[in-house]
Design a binder for these strands. Sequence first.
RNA 1: GGUCAUGUAGCUCAGCCUGGCAGAGCGAAGGUUUUGUAAACCUUAGGUCGCGGGUUCAAAUCCCGUCAUGACCUCCA
Length: 648
Amino acid sequence: MRILQLHVDYIEYFPVSKEIADAETLTLNEKQRLEDTVVILMSIERGDEDSMIVDIAAEIKDYLEKIKGKSVLLYPYAHLSSNLESTDKAFNLFVKIEKELRQMFNQSDITINRAPFGWTKTLEFKVKGHPMAENSKSFHKKKDIQQTKFNNEREDLLDSCHDIEENDGGVSEALKTEKNLKSEWYILDTSGNLIKQNEFKFSKSERNLENLLNYEILKKRIVDEQPPHVKLMRKLGISDYEPASDSGNMRYYPKGRLLKSLLEQFVTRKVSEYGGLEVETPIMYDSHHPSMESYFNRFPARQYNIKSDQKDLFLRFAACFGQFLMAKDFQLSYKNLPLKLYELTRYSFRREKSGELVGLRRLRAFSMPDCHGFCRDLDQAKSEFLKRFQLSVSVVEEIGLSTRDDLEMAIRFTKDFYSENKQYIHNLVKDFGKPVLVEMWDERFFYFTLKWEFNFIDNLGKASALSTDQIDVENSERYGITFVDEYGNKKYPIILHNSPSGAIERVIFALLEKSAKLMRQGKVPYLPLWLMNTQVRIIPIGNEFMPQCNELLAVLKENSIRGDIDDRDETLSKKIREAETEWIHYVVIIGEKEVASNTVSIRERLTKKNYSENVTKLVTLIKDQVKDKPFLPINLQEYLSSRPRIAS
RNA sequence: GGUCAUGUAGCUCAGCCUGGCAGAGCGAAGGUUUUGUAAACCUUAGGUCGCGGGUUCAAAUCCCGUCAUGACCUCCA
């Protein structure tokens, strides 16, 4: 049984003619109009039975309470399903549901109405414009297997290329699968033991994995506060909300822009070393292009739509279709595979509901590295998949997030894929090095058969997906991407979808949340040295030492180290304090003593050590840490006296 | 849409319960100071107390409405 609940300002219907032979007899043959009511469009499906009535009535009651509705119209609506029950049985059940509702609301001021069954009717209504005004549910006979509904966090996990399914008569395949998705949850340990989630004993060090499980399936939310990174991103002058734009479209201050640029360059270089070919695809597409049309007409809500002249356009929410449309026009031989296309989208757009947006965790405009690998067969896909796993691990580790302490892995696959590839999956977990969360589906609902992702668990116990990869066995056919094999046959490649880091903004979110965790533990918060706008802050004891400061700054510049000079008329203590609050790793002080001994005084923030060294040593010290990470010059005035105050 | 909370100087906030001159710290500007490892000192400028209405001799404060924001609920191809 499927129902669609609509909270409407009004509804009008008029029975025109009998649609089936045994349509019920009408008591009133005139136009009906109801104001401010909940319309329940209902399809009764094959096999639906009386035992479900209670659940349905409970759902309706629940919905009414939430929106404070006082009136219900039950409306038989066959078009929600292609698997309908016979009309006599359906009518029977329909009337029983009405009866149950009347009984339930017997004592209340809620009125129950019902539209006639078996009639062709004219229908007009206006749905209210609030988020809960539309709500679809499906009901099934009680089974043992747990049913999960996709929530929004899972959307990340599904990642970029959402299902594009053919219409099957009113409700999309994607919507159907979502509501019917059956999966079981396990923990898979590094020795290959698959343990049911409720039987696994979490050790102390596995608290985050437990959090992930809670977050994913038990939907336990612990907190009601703003995540700490929001304050940090403002305090550090990284980014902030932009009230003049749409929510979820942030402004990035100089420090934030530099941080993003460095991360972007780093990920792009890593993918390039792996063999990804960087391309660029449009950020907007024609909503009426054949590849998009059937899909978007049904779900117009989730992306930004633009009307320009006569054209309807939408902003991309992933790099997938741009790359697929490109690959479709390539002439591919098996000799060219695996082919890896890569783009770092700046931006991808998703018009998430306003209530879902928080700081840098979830945005409406975000930068997503996206690498698609086109493989000739499953064997090639599997071996490539491993390389990309290693790539992803090294990317997040080098960024400064450790798979051991900061990230939890989830793997999702179908039962069939698991039984055929047990050893392969066990090896993946072994490579990861600690137990992972497993979601196993009975059958394949999505375009992929295997997918993993790294989740960062933030200070509030919420999980956010970062790196991910999937084995996609469907989209090449859908987009018409083919290659020619060694016998001259056209074949569809298997496509891998990898984001080695996840969204760049979300990486910053994770780094800041990690720092907040450190603060909570009484430790020193920090961002990796290579991502700091100011790597070295130079402070003269007095104005007369400015020449020596300038000399040092020049040496740092020559060595690709970002430095600046605090030349303001402030006390030394205050300058040091401000360098601390900016999380600057190295503060160098130059005064009489230093000039005399030809050294500099170094204050190391992370180790809280003060010592004197010569300049060469200082340079080496920093270069050893930054190594071959991308470098860009400082993105602020080098003299603090000429710098505007940005952080709040 | 619901529940709760918040909205006062550029920022962070106090004042509201119990109506009586619009406040503090930081920041900014000017000056003094020339600094040795986490906040020098003095002075000055800064306000449509979100908006509209009501009660009152008098409203930031009480009441009603409204807008915005946040958390949660809900929803989320």
